[in-house]
Amino acid sequence: MKKIYIINILVIVIGVGLLLSASKDMTSYSTFGMAIDTGKRVKVVGELLKDKAMVYDPEVNPNEFSFYLVDSEGQNNRVVLNKAKPQDFEMSEQVVVTGKMESGVFEADEVLMKCPSKYKDEEINLRNQG
């Protein structure tokens, strides 16, 4: 057998092995309910509740931003992000937070926003009058 075939087989075996081990890095979007049950670090995808308070006050704590999110099962929960408020956060609809539940509050250290592209709206920009 040619050396290159042996190497090819080797590469494929390693590749499949790596992919199997990489599946540990994969996770499904979780819910607040599951976060409470497992107590583990999870990713929750949810919709931002815009009528509830979004608090970021650099005067009090520049590393704390809190808001409310409703998850796919309809449960809403307060989320405290241990970072500054991302720019244009209010404009996002779907939000993905990574963290864990601690005494009823979801403590997140990462947040990803899905903004409806500001420049994609089917609307007409009117000229400023006056």
């Binding site: 790596l18 990489a22 890095d25 994969m26 996770t27 499904s28 979007y29 990713k43 990574t98």
Partner: peptide, 16 residues
């Protein structure tokens, strides 16, 4: 089917 995502992309890619 509820899709999977990479939990920590930067760590995942760097590792390999």
């Amino acid at each position: 089917f509820i899709g999977k995502v990479i939990e920590d992309p930067i760590e995942h890619y760097n590792k390999y």
